[in-house]
Design a protein around this nucleic acid. Structure first.
Lengths: 332, 332
DNA sequence: TTCCCCTCTGGTATCGATTACATAGTGGTA
DNA sequence: TACCACTATGTAATCGATACCAGAGGGGAA
């Protein structure tokens, strides 16, 4: 493997001069610079990051911890963070933890031995104790999507409570009074917050859900079951705490012979691409996913270089995307 | 930052002994081992990978190059590769190139300076010349989904041609004779192969597409447009070369008042989750995505450790998933 | 007793890069 | 001429870990 010595030998000079050429530091004659550059081009030499980091340079490595990247929400998030970080000069370890704390701990140990400069995490809810060693070394942690009680230096989290209120209010404004709620995974902080928002808005109108079904795993099959159960109570409106839940509900309603939105209105949350793919197209609350990712990347960068944080991070607003699954109740 | 010296001082011994404890090599008394382990636990010390690699150890780093991870196909692929590689003891750089050769070249330079042990790539089609430096250093490259003419040590690529044939044959078997094809991106090798398969199967039955619409970018809006154009020729069957294309076609048909599958049969390719989310649920050819990812990971591992390859890699078969969008033509 | 082998430990060269410092030549100015 | 500043280059220490080597005891065999 070509090293700086190889280049020095090829260019008939010392490693110090090669280094000066590489870093544009100190004095180098034009003649020598040319010889060195020729040698570099000839061998396709790339200086070893390991050696540089060891010597005391910055590592430019960051860890990204997500529950998974095979669901679109996190896939999009991961992509936007990775891109933004790469443009800022960092390289990312994208790790999917499958919601397992044990997996998370293994990844954290890896981050430590790789000497990452910072971490962005949407952690499994269980407990965040394994983040302690990172904190102890002063490695900044940005929480995304889910808060990281006490361990994160900062957090990019949307107002799930408000999102819940918006969903409920949309149906209430249409005149719905018999409203059901379904969602998963129930142990997720974000889901709980959205649910709280839904219930708060309903309560404000003197209502409460005619049915509330929370599941353990967040997948299509489970959502279908939850919706089937919820529909037994004959709601005219149904709130899916995620788009996947809402899409499951569309299928369940369809199989029961209900027309959407004539017999049943459905609203979701996230605005993943699939929401626009289903027929009828799903009304939902859009999270600015890519924006969240970029913000997290920029925030981490500021923490790493030690720039003082702008106090109030203005997060982009949630927006209602009205499509074809919501309308006033007609059954009345 | 705690280093091996810190530990040695804490345990009142030398760095050599600490190293022996860390690696279970050579002789260490039980007493000393205990002292060292206590010091390690106390400081949460993790040895620096940089130093280890520098010293000549294996880097255990691999690069994964994909066009994107925000589309589900590649998100699932990335996740399965990352998991399999992590379990094999590797850490992955997952990089999305946005189909740009320039981006790809930057990532390759990064891989070089990070001294990755191997690379898995689904490359932009343009040209693969920037992979030459990797080859030159003997770093194994596994191509996935798309071949990498001449640069890859090996490739995990499904039989797209066969897949194309299967789609066409399914419609032909139902009795369709007026068949249209749409898909994107047209510069993709996989898409071209599938198209060739479709045309070959049609030709075998003395048919040719009543309309063939290929687009540049692979997204929903474009697919919708392509489908609208294709439907002008009144086909009874439509082949989407990807599920996204097929889903776009479902919407276009719906908006034209066509009933599926009564007036029009539609078949897709990939079997991404959204295919089961649309209504009616999409008939498609399933790629064993996770299996492909795992195979690529294992193959790269074998290349890295220099194990002789089993000659014929038996790839899992493509399977037809019949759902609700295909049926015999009724309009007749 | 002498010699050898096994156990245990510490010192130190090494990997590839950066950088402080030393050295040396050149040109200008007092 | 003597001195200084500037340019140009090389030598060597350093980062954190590993591994080779040396050396110190201890025990058994000849």
């Amino acid at each position: 493997m070509a090293s700086i010595k190889t280049i020095a030998k090829l260019a008939q000079t010392s490693v110090a001069s090669v280094s000066r050429v590489l870093n544009n530091s100190g004095y180098v004659s034009a003649e020598l610079r040319a010889k060195v550059e020729a040698a570099i081009a000839q061998t396709n030499y790339q200086p070893s990051s390991d050696a540089r980091v060891l010597r005391g340079g910055k590592s430019n490595l960051v860890g990204i911890l997500l529950p998974s990247i095979d669901v679109q929400f996190f896939g999009i998030l991961a992509q936007s963070m990775e891109q933004a970080l790469f443009d800022l000069g960092y390289q990312s370890f994208i790790c999917s933890t499958a919601e397992s704390a044990a997996h998370e701990a293994r990844y954290v140990a890896m981050f430590l031995s790789r000497r990452v400069g910072g971490v962005i995490a949407a952690s499994a809810e269980a407990g965040a104790a394994h983040f302690a060693p990172l904190r102890a070394r002063g490695i900044p942690i940005v929480a995304i999507d889910r808060d990281l009680h006490g361990y994160a230096s900062d957090a990019i989290v949307i107002d799930h409570d408000l999102g819940g209120r918006m969903m409920a209010q949309h149906l209430i404004d249409f005149g719905h009074r018999k409203i059901a709620v379904i969602g998963a995974p129930l142990h997720s902080q974000s889901i709980q917050r959205r649910l709280a928002g839904v219930r708060a808005a309903l309560a404000q109108s003197g209502l409460e859900p005619v049915s509330q079904q929370l599941g353990k795993t967040h997948d299509f099959a489970q959502s279908y079951d939850l919706a089937s159960r919820a529909l037994a109570n004959r709601p005219t409106g149904l709130i899916g705490l995620t788009d996947i839940a809402a899409i499951g509900a569309i299928h369940a309603a369809h199989d029961l012979g209900l027309r959407i939105p004539h017999d049943l209105s459905i609203i979701g949350f996230d605005n993943i691409p699939s929401a626009a793919f289903v027929l009828p197209r799903l009304t939902t609350i859009a999270q600015p996913i890519r924006h969240l990712g970029r913000s997290a990347a920029e925030m981490l960068h500021r923490l790493i270089i030690g720039e003082p944080q702008t106090l109030a991070q203005a997060l982009p607003a949630l927006t209602l995307i009205q499509r074809d699954t919501t309308a006033p109740p007609c059954a009345a």
